[in-house]
């Protein structure tokens, strides 16, 4: 290897068709780059050694855009976290996503990182995942074979592992607009107040009709969403004890581990504490609205 020989080659397709053709040609030897804030670190430390890096940011079909289309909001794959945070539609209809996006790294990172990249990276601790999950996000995928849509819930398969198949590219994320009044609350525990990876993170959503959902990250192999089938959580007449019991039922789906960011016991305890707080915040927001 000569000093001027690259570790990988780089392509900058301008259409989806070109990008898919490259992906077809290189298969597993290709890595897709959107914001690059996760990928470039892995390229540097050589935990990824692709033949080619395909930069998707010039692909015409996925240029940064957040559009309201009838019943949903579509966020294209090249849209940065900063754009998501600042977008008026996101702020109006999906405020918990704004709060979650605001915790992804520093401003420098959010200026590059994309929402699509955050979910494709499929970190068990992905901070935007809980918000997207409670908002019922779906992921639009394209390949040479055509397009398909998967629910985000099914998109996360395991740590760093998604339902993306060989030759597929995420083109956008879609969020259905609310059908009824609702309130959502994002919450997390970190080791410091500045930029940090979550020890746990979660999002709660309560709908005026009484449906309550929670989504969690950093407490299992993949972010996941659970619904309160009992209806107790949104029931104003339910006791704190009954609510705690219902919450414990939801949290039982988590399988936190111990690592340098926190122990299993602490994570488990914080799941209950922060779930309680998020639920309370949602109910107060609904009442105030």
């Amino acid at each position: 290897m000569l000093p001027d020989s690259p570790l990988f080659s780089y392509a900058r397709p301008s259409t989806l068709e070109e990008a898919l053709a490259l992906l077809e040609r290189y298969g597993e030897g290709a890595n897709l780059l959107a914001g690059g804030t996760d990928l470039v670190v892995e390229l540097r430390n050589r935990s990824r050694r692709p033949e080619i890096v395909i930069d998707l940011k010039r692909v015409a079909e996925i240029q940064p855009a957040i559009t309201l289309t009838g019943r949903s909001l579509t966020i294209t794959a090249a849209t940065s976290m900063t754009d998501v945070q600042e977008n008026e539609h996101v702020r109006a209809h999906f405020p918990a996503l704004v709060d979650a996006a605001a915790t992804v790294g520093s401003i420098q990172i959010r200026n590059r990182a994309t929402l699509a990249g955050n979910i494709c990276h499929a970190s068990p601790a992905a901070d935007t995942a809980p918000a997207l999950l409670v908002y019922d996000a779906t992921v639009n995928l394209t390949s040479a074979r055509g397009t398909r849509t998967v629910k985000l819930e099914g998109f996360f398969v395991g740590p760093r592992h998604t339902a993306l198949q060989m030759g597929e590219i995420v083109t956008s994320i879609e969020l259905p607009l609310p059908r009824e009044r609702r309130a959502a609350q994002f919450a997390r525990i970190t080791r410091r107040r500045g930029v940090d990876l979550a020890t746990i993170s979660l999002c709660c959503m309560v709908e005026a009709g009484g449906r309550t959902r929670f989504a969690y990250a950093a407490v299992g192999p993949r972010p996941f969403v659970v619904a309160d089938e009992s209806g107790v959580l949104a029931d104003p007449s339910a006791s704190d004890g009954a609510k705690d019991e219902a919450l414990r039922g939801l949290i039982a789906h988590a399988s936190p581990i111990s690592d340098v960011r926190g122990s299993r016991e602490y994570r488990a305890a914080m799941l209950l504490v922060m779930s309680r707080r998020a639920l309370r915040a949602c109910i107060e927001k609904l009442r105030a609205a």
Partner: peptide, 15 residues
């Protein structure tokens, strides 16, 4: 185990 800036945390302006 926490080698590097990702998991060895020092105070930031927000701390």
């Amino acid at each position: 185990s926490n080698l590097g800036a990702l998991d060895y945390r020092i105070p930031t302006s927000k701390d």
